[in-house]
């Protein structure tokens, strides 16, 4: 069941195309993330769903009904804004109660519901605080509570954790995911942080330059990136040009390798993705891919080793150490090779 459908949405700002005929279906109760670099159109997509921006062309459907002209205050959608946009003249309690005050909810119900929201976001006891006297993380949680109290069908989140430090961000990621599961509300989440997208989402939508490049589960997106941009944007990867001479075989770096991909045209030029963690360091002597170690960086769990050889720079994540300047070889399994159409 799709709660929101976008059909051929296009929009330009000052003649500059921002969205180029995108279509997207969003299922009820899922956590979907729009992921892409800044300027890719993900925030614009969110604003079109929220009703703040009108598309030049295309339709927005909510529960199968076209809602193109519906103003934001009539949509069953609420937003957690980038940098929160809390009302500075209201305290925490009244910020959260805002949606209920609009519908003239009885005071008793307001108290009860705001109380529930405050405990949901772990801010009980902060009722009387002014929004300016809160830390970034606390403001964030007020913004979430304020958006959730109207019990929207869909919650839009525009880079909500962008202004928080790393530790708090990790904490809030977990909390958001929990809130989403418990409330059963569809979350549409915008971020440029691929790790955030992968850890929290049921579905990831990778966008670039006003287009949707790939839609899939985090595993799909990571393991089967559709093109070099997705592969590069989602995690680190070695992207090597090659050719598919036949099913289950690919030529690159002057050799033919066995792989698990099929269905490409004969001798179709392709991009090959090899994830740094899938590469194993071996002796240079009997390796098909080998080169000279150019740099070694300690990353905590592993070393990041850059090896130059066979006309490429290879990034390897390995718990083994290799000294700079030494010869090293690389090994990988057929299923580590991901083949993508040239984009």
């Amino acid at each position: 069941m799709d709660v929101i459908s976008l059909r051929n949405i296009s929009i330009s700002f000052d003649g500059e195309p921002v969205l180029k005929s995108i279509s997207l279906n969003i299922r009820d109760k899922e956590f979907i993330t729009l992921l892409g670099p800044s300027g890719c159109g993900k925030t614009t997509t969110l604003r079109i769903i929220g009703g703040f921006t009108k598309p030049d062309r295309g339709d927005v459907f909510f529960d199968g009904q076209r809602i193109n002209g519906l103003p934001p205050y009539k949509r069953h959608v609420n937003t957690v804004f980038q940098r929160y946009a809390l009302f500075p003249h209201l305290n925490v309690f009244e910020n959260i109660a805002f949606g209920l005050r609009i519908t003239k909810t009885p005071e008793k119900v307001v108290r009860q519901k705001v109380g529930e929201m405050l405990s949901l976001v772990n801010l009980s006891g902060f009722e009387k605080r002014q929004s300016g006297a809160l830390s970034g993380g606390q403001q964030q949680r007020v913004a979430i509570a304020r958006a959730l109290i109207n019990k929207p069908r869909v919650l839009l989140l525009d880079e909500p954790l962008g202004a928080l430090d790393l530790k708090l961000r990790k904490e809030m990621q977990g909390e958001l995911k929990n809130i989403q599961k418990r409330s059963g509300i569809t979350f549409i989440y915008v971020t440029h942080d691929q790790e955030e997208a992968l850890t929290m989402s049921d579905t990831v939508v990778v966008m670039n330059a006003g287009e949707i490049l790939q839609v899939g589960t985090p595993e799909d997106i990571y393991n089967e990136p559709r093109n070099a941009f997705v592969a590069d944007f989602i995690g680190e990867s070695n992207i090597i040009p090659g050719v598919m001479p036949a099913d289950f075989a690919v030529d690159f770096c002057g050799g033919r390798f066995e792989c698990v991909d099929k269905g490409f045209e004969k001798d179709e030029p392709v991009d090959i993705v090899l994830r740094p963690e899938d590469l194993t360091l071996i002796e240079a002597g009997n390796a098909r891919i080998h080169g000279v170690v150019r740099s070694v960086t300690f990353k905590g769990v592993h070393y990041e080793i850059i090896i130059e050889g066979m006309g490429c720079m290879w990034t390897v994540h390995s718990t083994d150490y290799a000294a700079v300047g030494t010869e090293a070889g690389l090994e990988f399994e057929p299923f580590d090779i991901h083949i993508m159409h040239k984009s």
């Binding site: 103003p71 205050y73 804004f81 946009a85 009302f87 005050r101 609009i102 958006a147 109207n150």
Partner: peptide, 20 residues
């Protein structure tokens, strides 16, 4: 953005004007 936030929370233009 505060005006957008009010619209988002269900306040029509008149309510947004008087409450925000």
């Amino acid at each position: 953005r505060l005006i957008e936030a009010a619209h988002d929370l269900g306040a029509n233009p008149a309510k947004t004007f008087f409450r925000v």
